[in-house]
Amino acid sequence: MNHTIRKLSSDETPPMDLLLLADPDQEIILSYLDRSSVFLMESEKGELIGVYLLLPTRPHTVEIVNIAVSEKFQGQGFGKKLLAHASETARSQGFLTLEIGTGNSSIAQLGLYQKSGFSISGIDFGFFLRNYPDPIWENGIQCKDMIRLSRHFS
């Protein structure tokens, strides 16, 4: 399927329903949304396939703070394409490191990120217990810890 990835324009509304697939707390999403660059993946018919947000966090470092593929399009390689686009965007903007975090229970995402060139760089133990009011369960595992991954560009 043909698709395009473009930056969200300032007069467009970010796709909250899609962002909530990756982060279940709208207040937390709103806390980083305005500081992030939002990129949309759309089909040739204009259907929304996916989204990712890039947020500069430290000098020479940018983080993918949210990445999601519409449930209708999951399992078709679009997440990998979004990650590749995010990497190329970060590199082209002069960043040396691209980071991403995911829950300890996000088994498929951990595999995808490592296959896409990211390496585990740390664990924030108890992150989801401290920052989310309701327990998060995925794959029969309670999401407690944030697994941090990074990709370095030379």
Rank of each mutant, 00 (worst) to 15 (best):
D11E: 09
S43T: 15
R35G: 02
I64S: 06
Y113W: 05
R58I: 00
T102S: 13
A90P: 13
G126F: 06
D134P: 07
F39Q: 04
F78C: 09
D134Y: 12
F153C: 09
G140P: 14
L40V: 05
N2Y: 02
L18T: 08
I136Y: 08
L54Y: 04
M16V: 09
S116V: 06
L21T: 07
V69W: 07
I100P: 12
Q109W: 05
V69G: 09
D34A: 14
T57K: 15
F125R: 15
G50D: 01
Q76Y: 06
N104L: 01
M146K: 15
K80M: 05
H85P: 12
R6Y: 07
A86D: 01
I123D: 01
K7N: 03
G79Y: 02
F95A: 04
N104K: 10
K144M: 11
Q114G: 12
F78R: 03
G79A: 05
D25I: 13
S150A: 10
G126D: 02
R91K: 15
T61R: 14
S150I: 07
M16G: 03
N66C: 12
D134A: 14
S150R: 15
S105D: 12
L82F: 05
D124R: 15
F78T: 02
V62M: 10
C143K: 15
P56M: 04
N2V: 01
Q142C: 12
G111W: 00
Q142D: 00
F128V: 04
Q76N: 11
D34E: 06
L83I: 15
L129R: 15
N131D: 00
E27R: 15
E88T: 12
G94V: 09
I5M: 09
P59F: 05
G126M: 07
S87E: 07
L30W: 04
T4K: 12
D17F: 11
I100A: 13
Y113A: 11
S154I: 04
D23E: 14
G126R: 11
I29E: 02
F95K: 04
G46Q: 04
Q142F: 03
F125Q: 10
P135L: 06
S105G: 14
I49F: 03
S119D: 07
S150E: 06
K115V: 00
S9P: 02
Y32L: 10
Q26L: 13
M41E: 00
M146Y: 05
G75S: 08
M41D: 00
E88M: 13
D23T: 08
Y113Q: 06
I100H: 08
M16K: 10
L98C: 12
